[in-house]
Write a protein that binds this DNA or RNA. Structure first.
Lengths: 341, 341
DNA sequence: CTGAAAGCGCTTACAG
DNA sequence: CTGAAAGCGCTTACAG
């Protein structure tokens, strides 16, 4: 039976208005009064009713985090980082997983955030204009990670530059037949083409830079899973003229590729090089060379952007530069090493 | 500007009480009236104010999920599974990460869930009696995963049997010098000794079953990270009489062990066998033999238990049996294979 | 089956 | 600096 403002007012010998003001730190209250009220509240173990103050103010102090798939490391990491920023700022975080097209449609069809949160942090889902408008119509401030929309704050990664850097690394090592393992979600996937095709474009850029003519047969587009990476790698190995290296659009795909290579008895990086994308928590343990794109940083920045928006700041977009992390999965192709001293 | 009950009442030509009852499906309303009200609501795009109904009813239809560390696969997976059950049942999920002792203490010191949620799903944190009492004093129904407390619903795994089965598998293969990589969190860690020492006890059981005398030097207790597993494995390899196999208390530790073994030029399972614990999403891709303990299942069952409690059911505890998943990281020790045909 | 009225527990102009 | 009062938008006995 939580006590109410009234009980505190009685005990402190003041009105409820004074209690309300004193406890929230509103200025214009005698220090002595404030002290008295605080003591009374303390003694009664009083804590203001959330529902009541939300009803009275219209603000929920809650942020909804909307994510395609909670169990992917990338998303969990972003949410964790964002959550720390949000809760330190006094916001509750409401979790919404939109793992299927049905859930996604249902979510946007009804005003599901109305009165539930003040803002939404949307990860990866490439919102349609209608979806974004729906959120705003529900009074939500919105911040995006992994996509950009006019009028909304967002943080994204220079993925084209990232794909280019990853590929250039292999080219510098002497590779010329380089495959690309890209992410291509099934139609209707809530992931909506994330991470973006930008990484593929960067791969092509690097080839062009080096005067290597692109081979469409080396470009794979699969679901973003270890197994899919595995399967694509297997296919690549059966080509008439197989590649000597691969750049994967995610570390998960790279893990799959590594599994296939190992299964085929090939040495990495001796016989084959692979570079991933993410700097996944486990990339280090398998010695994977990969692109780090500041995953936690993305969450942190997005949360800060959302809070700024809630505080009235105009929308802003933040762009992160990915960095190559060289580990043990890349080396010159065997052909070259054979002739070296 | 969301419309109110009043506006719907006006449009439908009834009282607000009738609107409230009609829209919530309360029995005792003429079907024709209900229909009329629903149409009016539809036309106005009306949706009841959450704060108002929460204030009026005292129920939030929200569940707090309390977790030590969001970015660990195990937790993310449990939350995802629990979240699906909860949201299908009409509950919002509020995320609370207690990643440091400070956050944990602050969380339990103040009535942080009061009026925020109807129940709490607590993962892995081994709640003290006071912490559990604090939650209940805040009117929370509680369900636990990974620990057991009198009066609270919970789902746990038969970890002792699991540790035993993992170890027995190696013994059956012919191993006798078997190390154990256990989880021992730093004092003050919010993880509070999870997964439980039960796994270690099971390991000892299996040795005893086989008449193998235990060697305390083979029992390692480290933080639950890939790097710690790596380091412990390195130490084990420098022993005067090194083990030929290891059972790790988590797949993360096992991944670390694998990395060290590979780095040392040892073949797995040729030169060394390892079995993990979790059946981590990536265990398959590295061919890790491991104990599956139904991670998603734990989340699902705990969510169902919590909902049942919220519906007035008595506390219940569910016990899951872990299963050995044999993959490619275990084989007879070399000594034995050398003499086989 | 329906309505008038009180109540849930805050916050916030408005006066003083 | 403080208080009386209205208002936030629902739900729920209580009557009829």
């Amino acid at each position: 039976m939580p006590s109410s403002v009234q009980s505190v007012a009685d005990r402190a010998g003041v009105s409820v208005s004074t209690v309300s003001r004193a406890l929230r730190g509103v200025p214009g209250i005698a220090e002595s009064t404030r002290k008295r009220v605080q003591e009374a509240a303390e003694e009664l173990g009083y804590v203001a009713s959330l529902s009541a103050s939300r009803l009275a103010t219209g603000r929920t102090h809650t942020v909804a985090v909307v994510v395609p798939l909670l169990s992917k490391w990338f998303f969990a990491e972003v949410i964790a980082a964002a959550g720390r920023v949000l809760s330190r700022a006094g916001y509750d975080v409401l979790l919404t997983e939109l793992s299927t097209p049905e859930l996604r449609n249902a979510f946007f069809a009804a005003p599901r955030l109305q009165g539930r949160s003040d803002g939404a942090l949307v990860l990866a889902l490439q919102l349609t204009a209608e979806e974004l408008a729906a959120l705003e119509a529900q009074g939500q401030a919105v911040a995006l990670v992994g996509s950009e929309r006019a009028g909304a704050s967002s943080v994204c990664v220079e993925d084209r530059a990232g794909g280019r850097a990853a590929t250039r690394h292999l080219i510098n090592l002497g590779h010329e037949r380089i495959a690309f393992l890209g992410i291509q979600e099934a139609p209707g996937s809530t992931l909506g083409g994330v991470p973006p095709a930008e990484r593929l474009l960067g791969y092509r850029d690097a080839l062009a830079d080096a005067g290597i003519s692109p081979d469409p047969g080396l470009e794979f587009g699969v679901g973003n899973t270890v197994d899919a990476g595995s399967a694509a790698m297997a296919t690549a190995l059966t080509m008439a003229e197989p590649p000597t290296a691969v750049v994967a659009a995610s570390d998960e795909l790279a893990f799959g590729a590594l599994a296939t290579l190992r299964g085929a008895g090939l040495q990495v990086p001796g016989d084959f090089s692979v570079v991933g994308y993410d700097n996944h928590e486990l990339a280090g343990s398998v010695g994977l060379t990969t692109m780090d794109h500041g995953v936690a940083e993305q969450g942190r920045l997005a949360a800060e952007a959302l809070i700024a928006t809630l505080d009235g700041a105009p929308a802003a977009v933040e762009r992160l530069q990915p960095n190559l992390v060289v580990r043990g999965s890349t080396a010159p192709p065997r052909r070259l090493r054979a002739v070296s001293p």
